[in-house]
């Protein structure tokens, strides 16, 4: 039982990270109906910014950790907005496939740029312990302060995101664009501003995800975004692409399953296979994902 609870805690902290990344996929899909495959590299850049900054700040302090986190989020927000402005916006209105392939191109470009020795290089580097690290035991459960940071930060960010989306003017505009971009424009919503804002928000969350991921698996390298990015994409689809609570739920489910399976001695080699099998099974039963809604139009 303790073993199960322990894996559940580990799973929640991994799932919280997936959830943060999945939110970016799902928000961009919501307003633009396309999958931003460069999102996993935004996640990687977030970890890189934190890695670099962590070398100049005193490690093991809460304020230092928060500064690093904030800087990574801000840097990623700028990166996301820039990618959209320079690459996706000129292609808007063309076939979705063109934009998708371009997104994969941006993803490969960012990986390659960071593999250049002058930028980062291909060798993984140790991620500094930017937050204070301590281990707590509750009963038989071992919980590290890093896990607590991950769960707390992720939960806070998701609450803030909900407030932004449901309580602010920009959030209303985002929801309107997701429901019907033309109608949103006809009530006076500035489409480009909403799209930029969505990229900023989603990329900042991915940046936070990158820092939190690097904290728990303390190394960074240019390809570190690939697997978590793919898993988060799966999580977003699992929860119902376009649905924000769905992305959060999908992330938590996927992280938990992966950790539970990974913790079992016999099945651990198959943890990714089982995670994806769950996706296939859920999509067979519910093609729109757990919380996704099929679009219906009344004529």
């Amino acid at each position: 039982m303790t073993e199960f609870l322990q894996q559940l805690v580990n799973g929640l902290s991994l799932g919280a990270i997936y959830a943060l990344i999945a939110l970016g996929y799902t928000m961009v899909y919501g307003v633009l109906r396309f999958i931003n495959f460069a999102h996993s590299e935004v996640f990687m850049v977030g970890a890189m910014i934190a890695w670099k900054l962590g070398q100049y700040l005193p490690n093991g302090t809460l304020w230092g950790g928060l500064v690093v986190l904030a800087a990574a989020m801000a840097g990623c927000a700028v990166l996301g907005v820039t990618i959209e402005r320079l690459v996706y916006r000129p292609l808007r209105g063309t076939a979705t496939l063109n934009v998708l392939i371009t997104a994969i191109g941006v993803s490969l470009l960012l990986q390659s740029v960071f593999q250049h020795p002058r930028v980062f290089g291909a060798t993984p580097q140790l991620f500094p312990a930017v937050f204070p690290s301590k281990n707590f035991t509750f009963g038989g459960l071992a919980i590290s302060s890093n896990q607590l940071v991950v769960i707390t930060v992720a939960a806070l960010l998701i609450v803030v995101l909900q407030l932004v989306i449901f309580r602010t003017r920009m959030g209303r505009a985002m929801r309107a664009v997701a429901l019907n971009p033309s109608a949103a424009q006809l009530v006076g919503v500035n489409l480009n501003a909403v799209i930029s804002f969505t990229f900023a928000l989603g990329s900042a969350l991915a940046g936070a995800g990158g820092v939190l991921y690097a904290l728990n698996y303390p190394s960074v390298e240019p390809l570190m975004g690939v697997m978590p990015g793919l898993k988060a994409f799966v999580a977003a689809v699992l929860g119902g692409i376009g649905s924000i609570p769905g992305a959060a739920l999908g992330g938590l489910i996927l992280g938990t399953i992966e950790t539970l399976v990974g913790g079992s001695a016999t099945l651990s080699t198959y943890k990714d296979a089982i995670a994806f099998a769950v996706l296939i099974f859920i999509l067979l039963c519910r093609p729109t994902g757990l919380l996704g809604r099929a679009a219906t139009e009344k004529v």
Binding site: R175, L179, N180, S182, A183, L186, R293, T296, E297, K298
Partner: peptide
Amino acid sequence: GHVPEGRMIFANL
């Protein structure tokens, strides 16, 4: 103001 063809109301709201 523009009332578009097909009405385009926000169906989920």
